[in-house]
């Protein structure tokens, strides 16, 4: 069958406009969510439950992953550093990789898979079973009562989880490097301390995870809130949350890294 150029152009146009429509919807939704955030701060108790489900429940996966990633970094880093006879720099390499990049990024990816997908499914199901509509009819704004606390919980959880990931990773690297390989303990820590800057490296890393928290949190509540109210719609929305969040995190990481670390030195 010959391709019809008019039909091709039409489908391309449709693809573009439908995506722009969704982006516009997401923007309006984001503005609406931000406008009710104040209400949530007044009733902080609402966030506690969400912090439990998003944060506490993600603890084990984040700490275990961090430990393993740190150990792998130590093994790989040692191999390379050995060639240049500077194995004491292992602590520096591991700490900088974790604090600047891997901590915020991998934690955000894990969080998208572990917590955000659950948030999307929960909100999608609440929508499919009219729970959000019922709340609205009881004169309780679902945006303030359901959406905003889950969004804020992501923003609060991610920096803490990322810090735990990095800390666990550094401990993992210490176990491999110092305890098993036998790098000097003092050199491991002192070189690290001399090269890791609190403002440039640690604060920027935390800032990154806050931005990731905003992105991942917003995507998860958006996909849930606008999920097609069927079993298939909710599962599609959940998948989309994970895919979109992951892409958003990696793209934002590139932008933030260029903004934060370019031109340093």
């Amino acid at each position: 069958m010959k391709a019809d150029p008019i039909a091709l152009l039409t489908s391309l146009g449709h693809a573009v406009t439908s995506r722009l429509d969704r982006l516009g919807l997401a923007t309006r939704f984001a503005i609406a969510v931000f406008s009710v955030l104040g209400v949530v701060f007044v009733r902080f108790g609402l966030i506690i439950r969400e912090l439990y489900f998003s944060g506490v429940r993600s603890l084990s996966i984040v700490i275990v992953s961090g430990l393993f990633v740190g150990m792998v970094l130590a093994v790989q880093g040692y191999e390379v550093l050995q060639r240049y006879g500077s194995t004491e720099a292992l602590g520096v390499i591991v700490a900088l990789s974790l604090v600047r990049e891997l901590g915020p990024v991998v934690t955000a990816l894990l969080f998208a898979g572990r917590a955000s997908s659950a948030v999307t499914a929960e909100i999608g199901l609440m929508r499919a079973t009219d729970q959000l509509a019922a709340m609205d009819m009881m004169a309780v704004d679902p945006l303030a009562r359901v959406i905003a606390p889950r969004f804020l919980a992501a923003i609060f959880s991610l920096p803490l989880l990322a810090a735990l990931f990095s800390a666990a990773g550094i401990v993992g690297a210490w176990i491999i490097g110092v305890k098993l390989i036998g790098i000097d303990d003092g050199a491991f820590w002192s070189q690290m301390q001399a090269s890791v800057d609190v403002r440039i490296d640690i604060v920027n890393g935390v800032l990154k995870s806050v931005v990731f928290g905003v992105a991942v949190g917003l995507i998860s509540v958006f996909e849930g809130y606008f999920a097609v109210p069927t079993a298939e719609g909710v599962s599609t929305a959940t998948t989309r949350t994970v895919v979109t969040s992951s892409l958003a995190v990696l793209l934002l990481d590139l932008v933030l890294t260029v903004m934060m670390f370019r031109g340093l030195n």
Binding site: V56, L59, A95, L160, A167, A194
Partner: peptide, 22 residues
């Protein structure tokens, strides 16, 4: 549980700032 989580997270941040950073 949430209190413990937040305390743990802040401890990790302090660890990064004091022990890893300068």
């Amino acid at each position: 549980a949430v209190g413990a989580f937040v305390a743990l997270g802040i401890l990790a941040l302090l660890f990064l700032a004091m022990k890893v950073g300068n």
